[in-house]
Design a binder for these strands. Structure first.
Lengths: 180, 180
DNA sequence: TCACTCTACCTTAGTACTGAGACACACATC
DNA sequence: GATGTGTGTCTCAGTACTAAGGTAGAGTGA
């Protein structure tokens, strides 16, 4: 890609500083991994841009929407559960729930068996909003991912699931283990 | 997944607020798309965490590293070219290049044919740093993506490439077109 | 019951950006 | 040359978080 879409008026005139280009010489295996990492990031970013723009129409960020969706489909959850589910920091979940409370979509509820803990639960307004926007959000995602046939989506999901689980399970530091 | 890994001491006692759970009823096609979106995001986040931690050892963010890598492999580029390649805002590229200049890894160079434009180019220090850290970064990615066999990586990359291109080409607004 | 440790949440300061707009210059047309 | 439009970069305010640390309560064992 990027076959000189622009700036090709005259390669000689427009690229006077070729100086410090360095060749990429790696094994085929490494090359495959690097390429997968690039396309994985780009695909995620491209879909994310659509999803983000969609929920922004209702004044929500993608992370806020993820919280609402989790609470909608699973019912009230402890803040810590939500945090682990949507992968934000502990400070982040406090901040995000505060914002959703301020918008009237979520409320905190005491946990009777643990006075440290709080549930996050949708308010009636929150339920109403999600009931309204979830279907169109799902439809939008279906369009954004529509370049792949359903069976290809299943196939890609299976590969990515294995990939994600293995990467998440790996020690973040050096992770030199390669136990199959 | 998430089959009550925690908080299952006593489901009755620990989950006293099942109240507002709503069933997810969508077509199989929609379900496939939703699931793909979730695993795509999670896989990207998991790998990103590793990549990010790796470059952080050298005081770099992933975005900064992406710029250095692009300049290393392709040579000096106009700021706008770099911006489109690594997908940041126009303000972002100015900010990021400023930071890399402050670190002594990159320098701006005038463009002789367009006085508005600037090249970003690696300094000798920048070249040296990248020559040193790129191989281990690539090896780390190879490990992080190692759950997939090379041929599976190629397969996944092909699917994600189609997915990403189609999603990126789609109009961000409503995009009701479905022209094959 | 005392001490210790662990967990759940919150607070605060900081970071890595984005978005909107401004400015200078390039280019095309008159 | 004058004028309008598009492009490349920068500025600045704002946003969506993260990281580190703090407090309160829960759980465990002497």
């Amino acid at each position: 890609m990027a076959q000189r879409t622009k700036f090709d008026v005259d390669p000689v005139e427009r690229a006077p500083l070729p100086g410090t280009a360095h060749p990429l010489e790696v094994s085929e295996q490494t090359e495959a991994a690097l390429k997968l990492w690039v396309v994985l990031s780009r695909a995620q970013a491209a879909v994310s841009a659509h999803a983000s723009a969609d929920v922004a129409r209702h004044g929500l960020t993608l992370t806020e929407f993820a919280i609402l969706e989790a609470l909608y489909h699973r019912g009230a959850m402890l803040l810590g559960e939500v945090q682990r589910r949507i992968l934000v920091s502990s400070g982040g979940i406090t901040f995000l729930v505060d914002r959703l409370v301020a918008k009237g979509l979520v409320e905190r509820q005491a946990c009777p068996s643990d006075r440290r803990a709080r549930y996050a639960a949708l308010t009636p307004d929150g339920v109403g909003l999600l009931r309204r926007i979830f279907p169109e959000h799902a439809a939008m995602l279906e369009r954004a991912l529509g370049a792949l046939e359903p069976h290809e989506q299943v196939e890609a999901a299976a590969l990515l699931k294995r990939l994600g689980h293995a990467a998440a399970a790996m020690d973040t530091q050096h992770a030199h283990f390669s136990n199959a």
